[in-house]
């Protein structure tokens, strides 16, 4: 029973890794924005980044 479950589970893990590599999945957080106006190319300052208000680390020990 457990061996059969593990047989299927292991195949699932391998299939998931194969799919992740083939489709180019990632663990990083990226925000997708649709329909960015073409004018951004001429006026980059007109685009407001999602992460513009990010609180930057200014530390060090």
């Amino acid at each position: 029973m457990i061996r059969n479950f593990f047989l299927v589970y292991g195949l699932f893990v391998l299939a998931a890794v194969s799919a992740a590599e083939y489709r180019g999945w990632s663990l990083n957080r990226v925000t997708q924005v649709l329909n960015v106006p073409r004018s951004v190319r001429d006026n980059p300052g007109s685009y407001r980044s999602v992460y513009g208000s990010y609180h930057h680390y200014t530390g060090g020990k």
Binding site: N28, R29, V30, T31, V33, V40, S49, Y51, Y54, H56
Partner: peptide, 25 residues
């Protein structure tokens, strides 16, 4: 060197206007 830089990135598809927005420090 004992400092930081933060970069707001947007990878933008010129043809469709779809963008991937992310920031890296």
């Amino acid at each position: 060197d004992n400092d930081w830089i933060y970069l707001n990135y947007a990878l933008i598809n010129q043809d469709t206007g779809n963008a991937y927005d992310f920031g890296r420090e």
